[in-house]
Structures are given as structure tokens and as C-alpha cells.
Amino acid sequence: MDLRHDVLQIIFEALKSLNEELPEDQQVALSEDTLLFGGESTIDSLSLVSVIVDVETAISTQFDRPVALTDDRAMSREPSPFTSVRTLTDFVVELLTEKA
């Protein structure tokens, strides 16, 4: 399995957990184009925080190395890694392919 696919599945799992808490008409699409943060995102602040923390934990567990998605490095990136599922996936893959 390729790394990007694995990361994407972890993010989708986090969104599935979020969907379990949301009413039918507010379900978040499991798509790379889904917006996570910004004016057009339908995900509220607490849900976004929860999803990102879930992804951070799952990535660190699955790949057996600490990965920080919520520190100031992520915050200083433009465009924000939290903009969409795609940008978040790309950011995580970048972190995981860096030399330790």
C-alpha cells in the first residue's frame, strides 16, 4: 500500500468518527476535496480540533513515530495544511517522508 493512501484512510476514519456525532444533514463528505477549515468549511471549530487531534494520534500510532500536526510549524505554513483533506494529506505525507 502506498503511504498517501494510508494517510488518507486515517483522515477518513477521523471524519467517519465525526460523522457519527453529526445529524444526517450535516454529514461531512469523505473526499479529498472536503474543506476542513476556512469560510466555506461546514466543520465547526471544536470538531476541527477533534479531527486533527484524532489524526495526529492515529498517525503517530500507526507509523510508530511522533508526528506533530498542531505545533507552530504547521501553523506557519501557507496555504494552511488544514484547508482541506487534500492539503492535510500532503502535509502528513511530507512529515512522514522527512528523514528522522
Binding site: 471549530s45 471544536l46 480540533v49 486533527i52 506533530a68 498542531t70 505545533d71 501553523m75 494552511s80
Partner: peptide, 16 residues
């Protein structure tokens, strides 16, 4: 403390 700026971003608080 390390995730402070992330939380502020998520809560749309205009500060860093």
C-alpha cells in the same frame, strides 16, 4: 501550550 496557536486558529481568534 504547544498547540495554543492551533487552537486559536481553529476558534478563529485573531491573535498569535
Amino acid at each position: 501550550a504547544k498547540v495554543a496557536n492551533f487552537l486559536m486558529m481553529a476558534f478563529k481568534i485573531p491573535a498569535k
